[in-house]
Design a protein around this nucleic acid. Structure first.
Lengths: 103, 103
DNA sequence: ACAATAAGTCAGAATTTTATGACTACAAAA
DNA sequence: TTTTGTAGTCATAAAATTCTGACTTATTGT
């Protein structure tokens, strides 16, 4: 039987959605790198040691769908795609810095 | 073969540890409630609808081991145990409020 | 037309997290 | 000493997350 997500997923804690969005095995690092410079898939794959395509792909899509990153197709020589941090993404930087400071 | 955690778990993102500590299915809600008042196991079990003993137990221990909550045994009539937020725990409140604000 | 490179997707396996229900530990009241 | 209430633990099952390697798509250079 294929499994389904039964739970309501309507957590009562307002911060939970954002916490879930930012947590996970690779998303914190992806976000941190995106703050510094635009990201490209293949570079990420090398930069983030141990990560695999599938996971990065899913993580990037989630961050994009949440509006923290935006996908930009660059029609150049060998065709590139960049993931840039958005204004919404930038609004999370202070929280991130706080979290780093408190670590 | 019994499975083992091979990965180094030394994430390069400083915020990751804290994010992992605060995320999960029940920890954000537990933390939020702990900010308001001391927690007791049995109350939590009723307050947090859908949660089970095992998960709450693990979550409370993790938060305690991380120094965000402290366990206090109250030697009274039927013996109670309280989980109180610590100073370290309080230091995370601003981040939490920020996360809620940005949600 | 053909090969090469970038950016993925897909099915299935492995690992981690969460859930269930039975059982344990301790103190106090009867 | 047996019972009761609070606070858990334990083994096992179910669900969610992450990994692996093969395959796809789109664009460009030869």
């Amino acid at each position: 039987m294929t499994t389904k997500n039964i739970t309501d997923e309507t957590g009562t804690c307002p911060a939970q959605g954002l916490l879930k969005l930012l947590s996970g095995k690779w998303k914190p690092e992806i976000f941190r790198l995106a703050v510094e410079r635009p990201l490209r898939f293949s570079s990420l794959l090398h930069q983030i040691q141990g990560a695999n395509k599938q996971s990065l792909s899913v993580a990037l899509r989630e961050l994009e769908e949440a509006g923290l990153l935006e996908k930009v197709v660059i029609k150049q020589k060998p065709l590139h795609i960049e993931y840039n941090i958005t204004e919404k993404g930038k609004s999370l930087i202070p929280v991130f810095l706080q979290l780093e400071f408190l670590s």
